[in-house]
Amino acid sequence: MSEKARRGWRGYAFTRPIAGSTIPHRVQNLVLRTYAERHGLLFLLSVFEYHHDGSYMMLESLYENLPAIEGLLFYSLNMLPEGRAARERLYDAVLSSGAGLRFALEEMQVSKREDVALVEDIMAVKALARERVPAELVP
């Protein structure tokens, strides 16, 4: 019995700044479309996340539809949730429904559990570049 055919990659873009810069929607869409074209992917119209800081409501609303599509196509890795727990929920949602995660700007993808380590290494270094060890962590 064959699984119902999955169709397309859902674009995911930001309204708020990405790594400190505001990227016009048009530019994000352009990058997403070009990436999809070059990789022969069916591109599904982008969903834009809400503007307020730390919101991933739009992203999380996409989870239930994951079994019907091939995956989520982020404009950039820099849009991933800052907290590890939220990222784990994303990886779990995507991988457990047999979908994938792609990042257009960085040309990277997570299609299996082992791919997470590289993304997390990059997130670790980016976080380090931003912050110092908070004093309250010292017992």
């Binding site: 590890r84 990059i122 976080a127």
Partner: peptide, 27 residues
């Protein structure tokens, strides 16, 4: 930038552990 142009090729365990510790404190 890292990710876009560079990739980590020899990340050491202390870097990963430290990051995970800070992330657990946060969540």
């Amino acid at each position: 930038e890292l990710g876009e142009s560079f990739l980590p090729v020899t990340t050491r365990p202390a870097t990963r552990i430290g990051f995970e510790y800070l992330q657990e404190e946060k969540s």
